[in-house]
Design a binder for these strands. Structure first.
Length: 107
DNA sequence: CTCGTGACTCCCG
DNA sequence: TCGGGAGCCACGA
């Protein structure tokens, strides 16, 4: 499945994230080959989320929190995740230890 | 080629 | 727990 570009890898990886599980920007970036291109992952979502029909809501930050600001998609993402069974604690955080997706689980 | 741009992450205080 | 500052990087114009 491995295409050529970093972007393509990222898209492919995000597509591999199963429902009820999430991943972080940095992790996706690392899987794509660059652990420091986390920010790039975010930009890719913006540029290809709709086009590639990516499950963008399954990508959150390292703290287990939604990076999107309120009224900018935050609520939507939270809803989508909760709909998949992801639980948020009182701090609006998810327990990464429980929902964090591991490529080994899927592969 | 150069420049601007982030849905990030780490480090400090 | 929270916020500010700096580093890092691929991509489009």
């Amino acid at each position: 499945m491995r295409r050529q570009g970093f972007t393509n890898q990222v898209i492919s990886i995000i597509h591999s994230i199963p429902p009820g599980r999430v991943s972080t920007y940095g992790m996706v970036a690392a899987m794509a080959g660059n652990s420091r291109a986390a920010r790039q992952v975010a930009r890719i979502l913006h540029s290809s989320s709709a086009r590639e029909d990516l499950p963008w809501h399954r990508v959150i930050n390292r703290q287990g929190r939604i990076s999107l600001p309120p009224f900018q998609g935050y609520e939507l993402q939270k809803s989508l995740l909760e709909a998949e069974g992801v639980v948020f604690d009182s701090g609006d955080r998810v327990e990464l230890a429980h929902v964090l997706w591991s490529p080994e689980s899927a592969e």
